Simulated scan of single mutants.
Amino acid sequence: MNNFSSIANHLFSPAYAQHRTPIVLCDFDGTISVKDVTDTLLSHFGQDGCDELEELWVSGKIGSQECMSKQIALMDASLEELNEVLSQIEIDPAFKSFVNYTEKNNIPVHIVSDGLDYAIEFVLKRHGIENLPIFANKLLHDNERSWRLEFPYANKDCIKQSGNCKCNHVKKQQYFPQILYVGDGTSDYCVSHHVDLVFAKDKLIQYCENNNIEHCAIKSFADVTEALKQSQQALIPVMMVK
């Protein structure tokens, strides 16, 4: 029997006292990264059965936790091969400047993703970004060619049956006067109903419009940084729509 272990470094969970600034929660795949990292890895290393699982998820017959768990178990790759593909993943060119701005202004940023912790950590580190709290599914490796997932942030009551219940993470941010969220797609729909303001890209823009969710349409993290600068603690950007 294979022994699987985590390959990500220790991903800390910061503790905050009462805070006067907002907190920004960011999706990763398609929001920070240009491509969806999990889809990219599966396209390179996924074996027969991955596409069928994806169809079941898209049709709503299984949740993302079940889908991803079974898909990752179908990957065939060494760690070196995985890292080679991850080395080709690009991120939003404005994300590093956004992180620098939030650090200077003591605005916490958490990455809250239904993706893979090791992949997120690897990609960010390659772009010179370290020490951001990452809340994601735990990627396990057997030191040969097999992979598994664990779900430390799953919630049995999650409506979307996600591996990482983003709504549950929001509930833990009671120390902040405002919770801001940056996202782009399906995994961000549910959580968008539970934050104070959404910075939305791509499919998430239309979802927010259809559901009367307070949001700012953005093209990159440069727009988020500019909104934070203009609004300061009030966070009422001119571009806000409802």
Results as ranks from 00 to 15, higher is better:
H44P: 06
I120D: 00
K35R: 14
S13P: 04
L74K: 12
H44L: 11
E130F: 05
K138R: 15
K160A: 13
E144Q: 14
C158R: 02
L79T: 04
T102I: 07
Q232N: 14
Q206S: 14
R145A: 08
E150C: 05
I32C: 04
A119Y: 02
S13H: 12
C50A: 11
E55H: 10
V241K: 09
S97H: 13
C216V: 10
V224T: 07
E54L: 13
N155H: 09
K219V: 09
S192K: 04
V191K: 00
G49Q: 07
D51Q: 12
F28Y: 11
S187Y: 00
D223I: 01
G128M: 02
K242N: 15
P22H: 04
D29K: 00
A217G: 09
G46I: 01
L116M: 13
D223S: 05
S162I: 00
F12Q: 12
Q71N: 04
D202A: 12
H141T: 03
A200R: 00
S192N: 10
D188P: 02
S78A: 11
P152L: 07
N143M: 14
N2M: 11
V112F: 02
D48A: 15
I32Y: 00
I107R: 00
H110T: 04
C67M: 15
D39V: 07
A234V: 10
C216M: 12
N211E: 13
G30H: 01
V24S: 01
W147I: 01
Q18K: 11
D48L: 10
L197S: 02
D27M: 05
Y175W: 09
T102S: 11
I129Q: 06
G163H: 01
Y175H: 14
I236V: 13
I205L: 04
E81V: 06
M240Y: 06
E121S: 06
D36S: 06
K172D: 11
N106H: 11
Q161R: 10
S43E: 15
S33G: 06
I91L: 06
S43D: 15
D114H: 03
K171L: 14
E209V: 07
L197N: 01
N131Y: 09
D117L: 02
Q174L: 12
K125T: 12
I159N: 09
R145D: 12
K70D: 15
C216K: 01
S33K: 00
K229C: 07
Q178F: 04
T21S: 15
E150D: 14
P133T: 09
M239S: 13
S187G: 08
T102E: 03
R126C: 08
H169S: 07
A234H: 10
A119E: 02
L86R: 03
A234C: 12
K35N: 15
L42A: 04
T186K: 07
V112N: 03
S97Y: 06
Q230K: 10
F28T: 00
T31P: 05
T40F: 03
D142Y: 08
A200D: 03
S192D: 06
E214K: 13
